[in-house]
Structures are given as structure tokens and as C-alpha cells.
């Protein structure tokens, strides 16, 4: 039009670029100094930290635990979230708005507070364990602290709301008429799920799984609180190694490994989503 819109880009671009470039440069550079412990670093650029990360079984195990809990959390998010998203997307009454609001509310409450709730629920004489012991499903109280199950549950609290909202927008793009057509031609409910909804939502679901997996890989708060100092994922390890062992370079190295793996997965999911958008299979 008559306005030079690009001028508006300059101030935010300068601030944005400076912050991204400066912070990433300084920390990536720090990851290449030898770590002498207690905040002291060598003054030559070396790749020793990376060699140590990739050869030390301790760090590799942490990487494996991170990948495993993230994958489990992403899958569980799909399993718990898909039916809810389907229900909301197919609902015609005003209840759908209320159900959506419930999801949004849960995503807006910080995870630290939710963990407090989990502590009360899962404590030895809390609601969950009392009920389960009374029914006889468990013979001893079940704890979610300091084990991988707990970390997965914590990660799910972080991703489930987001996952449902994303799945909801994917399912909305599948026309209801396709389901009706299949049913008219004699398909039962399961066949409709299996032959219509599943194949049509598969690309979107794959992208959603990658995004959620990625969020979990980088999730600090829930993993740290529910890991209880016994389960370590990469983000938890970064915080510990920097704040307790005061090993800045090693912390930066782990952060760099995490950053690179997350960005690779992200590019993959962006590429996937872009192809979906081009094919009008998703509205996000």
C-alpha cells in the first residue's frame, strides 16, 4: 500500500536477532572449552566435552531415558487425547465449548501447581492409593515420584492439553459425511474408525506425535519434579550440572546436544505439516 511496512520489521528484527544470535553464540562457544569444574574453564577451543558425552555411558543412558520417556509420553498423549479430540470435534451442542474450555484451563495452569495436586493424589494415604487398595487392584501403594512412570505422567500433564487441541483441528478437517457414507454402506463403528478416520488423520497424527515428542525432550519442570532426583533426562541434567556441579561448559555441551536433536525433529515436523497444509489436511 502506501506505507513502507518493512520499516516496522527493523526494530523487532534487531532485538530478536541480537538475542538469538548472542545467546546461542555465547553458549555454543562455551561448550567447546574444556571443563575444569567449579566454574573454571580451559582457554582453548576443544571438542573434548562432546567426545566425553558421546563415549560416557552415563550421559548416553540419560539420552536414552530422555528419548524413552518422551516417546512413551507422546504415545500416551495420543491414546488419551485422540478420543477426547474426536468427541469435541464431532459434538454439535454447546457442550463442545465447555469441554474445550476444560482443556484450555488445564493448559493454562503451571505444571508446578499440578505437581502439588499429583503429590496429594498419589501419596501413600491419598485418594488414588486408598481407592486402589480398597478395590484390590494394587497390593501396595503406587508412587509416581522418582521413577520413570512418574516422569511420563508429568510429561503428559505438560502435553495432553496441547495435543488434544492439535488433534481437534486435525479431526475437524475430516468431513463427517465420509463417516456417514461408510455407515450407510454397512460399515460398523470400528470399521469406520479403522478405514476412514485412522488413515485420514494419520499424517496429522504423525506430525502431532513429533511435536509432542519434541516438547517432552525439552521439558524441564515436570521431569525434574517427578524424577525426584532419581530419574535424569537431558534438561534435568543440564540444570543439575550447571547449578550443583558448577560445570558450565559440560552443561553447555549437553544443552547443545539437546538443541540439535530437537531442531532436527522440529524441521521434520515442520516439513510434514507444510505438506499437510498444502494438501488441506490440517488447519493450524
Amino acid at each position: 500500500m502506501w506505507v513502507r511496512w518493512w520499516i516496522l520489521l527493523i526494530p523487532p528484527l534487531i532485538v530478536g536477532f541480537t538475542l538469538v544470535a548472542a545467546s546461542q553464540f555465547v553458549f555454543l562457544r562455551a561448550s567447546f572449552f574444556e571443563d575444569l569444574g567449579l566454574g573454571r574453564v580451559g582457554d582453548e577451543l576443544v571438542i573434548g566435552n562432546y567426545v566425553q558425552f558421546l563415549t560416557d555411558g552415563f550421559y548416553l543412558k540419560i539420552l536414552w531415558v530422555t528419548v524413552k520417556t518422551s516417546a512413551l509420553a507422546a504415545l500416551s498423549t495420543l491414546i488419551l487425547g485422540f478420543p477426547v479430540a474426536y468427541l469435541i470435534a464431532r459434538m454439535r451442542s454447546s457442550w463442545s465449548m465447555i469441554l474445550l474450555a476444560g482443556i484450555v484451563v488445564s493448559t493454562f495452569i503451571t505444571i508446578v501447581i499440578k505437581v502439588y495436586g499429583l503429590i496429594v493424589i498419589f501419596s501413600a494415604n491419598g485418594l488414588f492409593n486408598q481407592t486402589m487398595l480398597a478395590i484390590g487392584l494394587f497390593d501396595k501403594p503406587f508412587s509416581v515420584f522418582g521413577n520413570e512412570t512418574g516422569v511420563v505422567i508429568g510429561l503428559m500433564h505438560f502435553t495432553l492439553g496441547f495435543g488434544v487441541l492439535l488433534l481437534y483441528s486435525i479431526i475437524q478437517t475430516i468431513p463427517k459425511s465420509l463417516e456417514s457414507a461408510a455407515q450407510i454402506h454397512g460399515a460398523n463403528r470400528w470399521r469406520v474408525y479403522y478405514r476412514i478416520i485412522f488413515p485420514l488423520s494419520l499424517p496429522g497424527v504423525t506430525a502431532m506425535l513429533l511435536m509432542v515428542f519434541n516438547m517432552c525432550m525439552g521439558a524441564f519442570t515436570s521431569a525434574a519434579l517427578l524424577g525426584g532426583g532419581r530419574v535424569f533426562t537431558l534438561p534435568v541434567m543440564i540444570q543439575r550440572i550447571v547449578m550443583m556441579d558448577i560445570k558450565y561448559s559440560m552443561g553447555a555441551t549437553i544443552a547443545a546436544v539437546l538443541l540439535v536433536s530437537v531442531i532436527v525433529i522440529n524441521l521434520l515436523s515442520i516439513y510434514l505439516l507444510r505438506r499437510l497444509r498444502a494438501a488441506h489436511l490440517v488447519v493450524v
Binding site: 523487532p12 528484527l13 530478536g16 536477532f17 538469538v20 548472542a22 545467546s23 546461542q24 555465547v26 553458549f27 562455551a30 525432550m217 525439552g218 521439558a219 524441564f220 534438561p235 543440564i238 540444570q239 550447571v242 558450565y248 552443561g251 553447555a252 544443552a255 539437546l258 538443541l259 530437537v262 531442531i263 522440529n266
Partner: peptide
């Protein structure tokens, strides 16, 4: 560039700003 902070895990942002 504008979307970059979303791609970077928050914990990495934390340590990066601390070192900055």
C-alpha cells in the same frame, strides 16, 4: 528468526542467557 525461541528448549534458553 522470530520463531526461533519456540524451537529452542526453554532450559537451553536459560543456560544460554546465563552465560550471555
Amino acid at each position: 528468526i522470530f520463531r526461533a525461541p519456540l524451537q529452542i528448549p526453554a532450559i537451553v534458553t536459560g543456560i544460554a542467557f546465563l552465560q550471555l
